[in-house]
């Protein structure tokens, strides 16, 4: 008999907590890097304490002004971005961002990007447990920077090397963020697992472009940009499914989540938690709506813990 949809008490508390890489998140809803600033911008619309966690904008060793505008282009059910990793640089990040995040009542994940293994190692050496962070997400997949992290994200040997270097330098749990712009995502997942990753997040944006037919030139100043939003979700769900079968690491699933149903889809495909990116732009209180929706879903289907959902679609 399926677990009692009718017998479950309506009042039963649902356990929304998830543990990944030794970190406890109060619920499985995290915000995605680059879409949530440094945590405070959305506070008026979505209380920080309602979030499982926040992932900060990607940081590089040196400050970066990023790409020229236009940096954004809307596409069917999605958008392209080419921010170009604008960020204040590691030194400023440590000086001004870290003190602020210590005050945030949620788990905060830093996201690091680099142009060489040494870059990643340098940041990992600086960002350790005493920084107040919960984990380090290693972006080996940003498609917007020429000669950027992309090649680490598409070559399994380099991906393994970067993750290993980061692991050696930091005592924080390490999350490897994978690029979808590869032939076989399972191979990348296995590579970062060998490198010692404690968890995997995916997907980063899909490389795309859009041309203004009246002006007869690319819309983005950078020509190419990363596609995100609902359009990428089926690709992301498929990749989470594949990675869940390939490695035995917790997965943070993301790509196009704009409702709680979308989030549940990722959990069923094998994710332990989800991240919301572009969806925040559409509905600034989406993370809150998603965690409430997941809770109601669990209750309706007779699950006492959200952890029971992870990978369920592989088994039934």
């Amino acid at each position: 008999m399926p677990r009692g949809e009718t017998s479950a008490s309506v009042e039963a508390a649902i356990d929304l907590t998830v543990q990944m890489a030794g970190v406890e998140f109060r619920n499985p809803v995290i915000t995605a890097s680059g879409t949530y600033g440094f945590g405070s911008e959305y506070a008026p619309y979505c209380p920080v304490e309602a979030l499982g966690g926040i992932t900060l904008k990607g940081t590089t060793p040196e400050p970066r002004l990023g790409n020229c505008v236009p940096r954004l282009a809307e596409t069917p059910a999605g958008m392209l971005n080419a921010i170009g990793l604008e960020n204040p640089g590691l030194e400023e990040f440590v000086k001004t961002v870290l003190p602020q995040i210590k005050e945030l009542p949620t788990q905060v994940i830093a996201n690091i990007s680099g142009f060489s293994v040494a870059d990643y190692a340098l940041m990992a050496r600086t960002l350790r447990r005493d920084s107040g962070l919960a984990a380090l997400e290693v972006n080996i997949s940003c498609p917007n920077v020429k000669h950027g992290g992309m090649h680490f994200g598409t070559d399994s040997q380099s991906a393994e090397t970067v993750i290993r270097a980061v692991k050696q330098e930091t005592d924080l749990p390490v999350i490897a963020k994978l690029s979808p712009n590869v032939t076989d995502i399972r191979e990348m997942a296995r590579a970062v697992a060998r490198g010692g990753a404690d968890a995997i997040s995916l997907i980063n944006t899909l490389l795309g472009m859009s041309i203004d037919v009246e002006k007869k030139k690319p819309v983005l100043a950078n020509t190419f940009g990363g596609l995100s939003g609902p359009a990428v979700r089926p690709v992301a769900v498929r990749m989470v499914w594949e990675v869940a079968e390939a490695v035995d690491l917790p997965i943070i699933g993301m790509g196009g989540i704009s409702s709680w149903q979308d989030a549940v889809e990722f959990l069923l495909a094998g994710a332990s938690a989800v991240s919301i990116g572009t969806g925040n732009f559409l509905n600034p209180s989406l993370p809150l709506d998603v965690s409430t929706g997941i809770e109601t879903y669990c209750r309706r289907h007779g699950f006492s813990s959200v952890r029971e959902l992870t990978g369920l679609a592989h088994r039934v």
């Binding site: 879409t35 600033g37 911008e41 619309y45 940096r71 954004l72 282009a73 604008e86 572009t278 925040n280």
Partner: peptide, 16 residues
């Protein structure tokens, strides 16, 4: 400028 979030979170609407 073209905007994503509108609240300062995405860095889409940059001006130098």
């Amino acid at each position: 400028e073209r905007m994503g979030c509108g609240v300062g979170a995405c860095l889409g609407c940059s001006v130098t």
